[in-house]
């Protein structure tokens, strides 16, 4: 069983501390939801763990199977088993989905090893069918001109192809209508139920995604820290009481 341990992590953008000591351990197969108001550091947490150069880790550690990832380049972290599903995936003109995923898989092979093209396409098409992505998309440029829903499905497709140990899903539900949300959730759940069974950190502002991807743990983030943890009922409580409740309850504590 794999583990992702976030230990007292502190993250800054420039001189400004955003994440101020956050600890969380995720194991294979677990889904942890992090909820919280905008601007509380949720996306920063995900991007910094993936290695985004705009963020500085000023303290703490992130261990993947006991080994720190902080000295690794972004691509090394990805090959070690981390996956970031972007809130706003980049558009990559001129690079087709097929070539892009092939390059990503090729990067995981030893020098001199080549991808079996027919097996690759067979697997790619199967995952696309599951996510109701038209097979013609393989020859389209990555996210180029895609709708919001298409981009998010493309993120889940990449996750399905790359089979990470841990996925950090940053507001995957934002901009999705209910049908697209259901398709995306089915895609994630299919991976949860598979032998790969990644651990998932689900960052969301809204509870509705958690109706489709049932979390094992729910954490409330406020001002750069986890201030409350519970089971899925905590998400419902948040939905009922709203984030003002969080602010009132925890503002004093974090001040």
């Amino acid at each position: 069983m794999a583990s992702l341990e976030i230990q007292n992590l502190q993250i800054s953008i420039g001189d400004k501390p955003i994440v101020k000591g956050l600890s969380l351990t995720i194991r294979s197969g677990e889904v942890h939801a992090i909820m919280g108001p905008n601007g509380t550091g949720k996306s920063t947490l995900a991007k910094a763990i993936a290695g985004h150069p705009d963020y500085t880790i000023t303290g703490g550690d992130v261990l993947l199977d006991g080994k720190s990832v902080l000295e690794m380049e972004t691509d090394e972290r990805a090959r070690a088993g981390l996956f970031l599903a972007f809130q706003y995936p980049s558009e990559i003109p001129g690079v087709t989905i097929a070539n892009f995923l092939r390059a990503a898989l090729q990067a995981r092979l030893a020098e001199g090893e080549e991808i079996d093209a027919s097996a690759y396409y067979k697997r790619l098409y199967a995952k696309m069918d599951l996510l109701k992505i038209d097979r013609k998309f393989t020859s389209r440029a990555v996210n180029d001109g895609f709708s919001g829903g298409e981009k998010k499905r493309c993120e889940i497709l990449q996750m399905a192809m790359l089979e990470p140990k841990f996925a950090l899903m940053d507001e995957t539900d934002s901009g999705l209508d209910i049908d697209a949300l259901r398709i995306v959730a089915e895609g994630v759940n299919a991976q949860r139920g598979s032998a790969i069974s990644p651990g998932i950190l689900l960052i969301t502002h809204y509870q509705r995604l958690l109706d489709y991807i049932i979390p094992d743990h729910v954490h409330v983030m406020w001002d750069g820290r986890i201030v409350k943890s519970g089971d899925k009922s905590l998400a419902l409580e948040l939905e009922a009481k709203g984030y003002d409740w969080v602010k009132q309850e925890f503002a004093a504590a974090s001040a």
Partner: peptide
């Protein structure tokens, strides 16, 4: 774009090459 490709496991040099080919593809 470079970060996006790297976040999928593609090393920086290979990512830049892919992006350069993307630039040519038009």
């Amino acid at each position: 774009q470079e970060f996006y490709l790297q976040s999928r496991g593609i090393a920086k040099a290979a990512a830049d090459e892919l992006l350069t080919f993307g630039f040519f593809e038009e």
